[in-house]
Nucleic acid binder design. Structure first.
Length: 470
RNA sequence: GGCGGCAUAGCCAAGCGGUAAGGCAGAGGACUGCAAAUCCUUCACCCCCGGUUCGAAUCCGGGUGCCGCCUCCA
């Protein structure tokens, strides 16, 4: 497939270093709070990227870290009156709850920074030995001027980066852009012993250390939000490549921001909505479809209206699936009366879906293919000679396979809230009796009562069908 | 100041030189006790001005507007 590589600023044919195996790293959350839906964007789109790769037969080692020690962790733990590890445990658990609910597949590994202190120390030592880092008052800095390629990801020279800089002057640094690999201990902060005295790792080093540990010195893909390009990813490259002498990452991919009222959603601006709150208001399926309805590198603007539109779109998808299941269950004696045109159409759309996904993960285009299939299926379904099992199977297979990648249909994930199936069934039969007696007033009352409980009734020629609201 | 992104119908959005996917909403029709679902029909000359080309939403130049990174941030 083709991927846009931020290192070369070009769309390139992606070929894993080792044929058939992809080493994929995604920057994960700092676990000091619930993640918000802006944070959720990379989790979801790179989950889809990974699923697509897996669907083509690639074996993906997918690593997403937890940053469980940094300033934000320390401050938050202090505010809450708990220890940093307690804080981390709490929000790692919350991360899994939210991410699982959003249908994000679990990573191969979720390494934590605090569990990789030895690896981090080893890497820092290497950098000091090779003259890329220096110690100043117990803090170790990476010396950017020793890495001539510094700025190759953000396409900025040291001078350019510096001129616009809003960095505090720090006389312990040799260059304003030098950054901490290891921070000397401060009173009241967690610390680990190191050759330079007690302290804790800097932010950037954990990713370099963990990525090389789990994926080797050169990995295929490293992903994250665009705001990580500088300084985080730039620094990761500098550290890792200075330490190993090998290219760190072959393809860098970054997602665009999620905006709220046309401004970047961020904790510091305060214009954020946690995934947790979001889940109360909208179905995870709708949230996923919303995220996938635009290209992953474009900005998307969050709004209630967008989510409502996504919800309606998901319903259309699910209605089609339900109709297909019903058609399959219906007794059909006759076999396929020869190949149906739908089979060809589905075949065409399979190709189209793949082409869109191959083109830098164009999920919006791929969704277009899915919806075209939905239209074709619905249309074929209402034709008079019923579709044979082969044709139905083909349609079902298409939806199933594309959904294994996109995860917007919720096959097998029906909501269980509200009245029990038995209660609903019994109300539906009551209503059927009422209808038979032409007591439409009662029938309508039952229908609206169930609707209030999140159950939608639809009368068809085969009787009443019900479904739960998503 | 440097680097980068975006501007397509009422809304969301694909499109990467060959005459505008798809979704939501709307209108008309079919079906229906009603509603819903579904189907059929309908709904855009692509921010502006130049240029290249037989041909441009798509390429080039110049504008305008919006957003982001250069500090923690997905």
């Amino acid at each position: 497939m083709k991927l846009y590589n931020d290192l070369t600023r070009r769309k390139e044919e992606f070929e894993p270093l080792v044929p058939g195996e992809v080493r994929f790293y995604v920057c994960g959350p700092t676990v000091y709070d619930f993640f918000h839906i802006g944070n959720a964007r990379p989790f979801i789109v790179f989950d889809v990227m990974r699923r697509y790769m897996e669907s083509t037969g690639l074996e993906v080692t997918y690593v997403q870290n937890f940053t469980d020690i940094d300033d934000k962790m320390i401050n938050r733990a202090r505010d809450l009156g708990i220890t940093v590890p307690e804080l981390a445990d709490r929000f790692i658990a919350a991360y899994y709850e939210d991410a699982d609910a959003l249908g994000i597949h679990r990573a191969t590994v979720n390494p934590k920074a605090t569990e990789h202190i030895p690896e981090i120390i080893t890497m820092v030592e290497k950098l000091i030995e090779s003259g890329h880092a220096y110690v100043s008052e117990g803090t170790v800095y990476f010396e950017v001027s020793t890495f001539p390629e510094y700025g190759k990801l953000s396409k900025q020279s040291l001078e350019e980066l510096q001129s616009g800089a809003r960095i505090d002057v720090d006389e312990r640094k040799r260059h304003p852009l030098d950054f901490a690999l290891w921070k000397a201990r401060k009173e009241g902060e967690p610390f680990w012993e190191s050759p330079w005295g007690p302290g804790r790792p800097g932010w950037h080093i954990e990713c370099s250390a963990m990525a090389t540990k789990y994926l080797g010195e050169t990995a295929d893909i490293h992903a994250g939000g665009s705001d990580l390009i500088f300084p985080h990813h730039e620094n990761e490259i500098a550290q890792a490549e200075a330490a190993t002498g090998k290219p760190f990452i072959r393809t860098w991919v970054h997602n665009g921001y999620l905006l709220m009222d046309n401004e970047k959603m961020s904790k510091s601006l305060g214009n954020f909505l946690t995934a947790r709150e979001m889940r109360k208001r909208f179905s995870p399926l709708a949230i996923r479809l919303f995220m996938l309805s635009a290209h992953y590198r474009s900005p998307i603007n969050f709004s209630d209206d967008s989510l409502r539109q996504a919800t309606a779109a998901v319903e259309r998808l699910r209605n089609c699936w339900t109709a297909l299941e019903e058609a399959k269950a219906a007794p059909i004696e006759k076999a396929d009366g020869g190949p149906h045109g739908l089979v060809n159409e589905i075949g065409r759309l399979r190709d189209r879906f793949r082409e869109e996904m191959e083109d830098d993960l164009n999920t919006a285009g791929a969704l277009g293919a899915v919806f075209e299939a939905v239209k074709a299926i619905n249309s074929a379904l209402r034709e008079s000679p019923a579709l044979g099992p082969d044709t139905l199977g083909e349609a079902e297979d298409f939806l199933k396979r594309t959904d294994e990648i996109l995860g917007v249909l919720g096959i097998g994930k029906e909501s269980e809230s509200g009245p029990s199936d038995e209660e609903i069934e019994s109300r539906v039969s009551e209503r059927a009796a009422a209808k038979k007696n032409k007591d439409f007033k009662l029938a309508d009352a039952i229908r609206s009562e169930l609707l209030e409980h999140g159950v939608i009734l639809e009368d068809t020629s085969q009787g009443t069908r019900w479904k739960r609201q998503i």
